[in-house]
Computed example of a mutant assay.
Amino acid sequence: MAEKKATTRRTASKTATVKKAAAPKKMAEILVDAENAGFRAGDVYQALSAAGTAQSVSELCKATGKSETEILLGIGWLLKEGKIKGEEGKVVLA
């Protein structure tokens, strides 16, 4: 009987140490259509042009005041058009 109680206590203590998963980070909701993507591409292009050097996504977010999602949307548009290129984790005008 003593073994059974010890096992029960261990099981109870094991369940008490289980951690809850962190809540997923909420992403900014934006309207994804050709017009919005084109405007975000323009924002990214203007920021890169003004900087004159390669910029990271976080630097572009600060320069434009847009969310990371919006910057990535604009970068995708400009990459497809061949207007920018990737350079060591940053983007630069092509």
Rank of each mutant, 00 (worst) to 15 (best):
E68F: 02
E35C: 08
Q55N: 12
V57P: 00
G82L: 15
L60H: 01
V18Q: 07
V18Y: 03
E70K: 05
G86E: 11
S58R: 03
A37P: 08
A28G: 10
E70W: 01
K90T: 15
K25W: 00
D33V: 15
K80Y: 10
K62C: 06
D43P: 03
G42P: 09
F39R: 02
K90F: 10
A22C: 10
A16Q: 13
A41K: 00
L78K: 04
A22F: 02
K62Q: 08
Y45H: 10
I71Q: 01
E81M: 10
V32Y: 02
K20N: 14
A41N: 03
L78C: 09
E88R: 09
A34V: 15
Q55K: 07
T64R: 00
E35A: 13
D33F: 13
T15Q: 12
I71S: 01
I84R: 07
M27I: 11
F39Q: 04
R40P: 08
R40Y: 01
E68K: 02
K66R: 10
K85D: 10
Y45I: 09
G52E: 06
V57C: 02
A37E: 15
E87A: 06
V32C: 04
A63Y: 04
K20P: 10
V32K: 01
A51E: 00
F39Y: 06
L79M: 10
T15S: 12
G42K: 08
E88Q: 11
T53V: 11
K83T: 14
Q46C: 08
A28E: 12
E81A: 11
C61W: 00
K20G: 14
E68S: 07
T17H: 05
A51N: 00
L72K: 05
G82Q: 14
G82T: 15
K85P: 04
K20V: 15
A16F: 09
G82N: 12
K19T: 15
T69Y: 06
K85H: 10
F39L: 08
A51Y: 00
I71D: 00
K85S: 13
A50E: 07
A34W: 11
R40I: 08
A23M: 12
K83D: 11
E59F: 01
W77V: 15
G52M: 03
L60C: 01
E35S: 10
N36H: 13
G74F: 01
A16N: 12
S56R: 07
E35G: 08
G76M: 07
L78E: 05
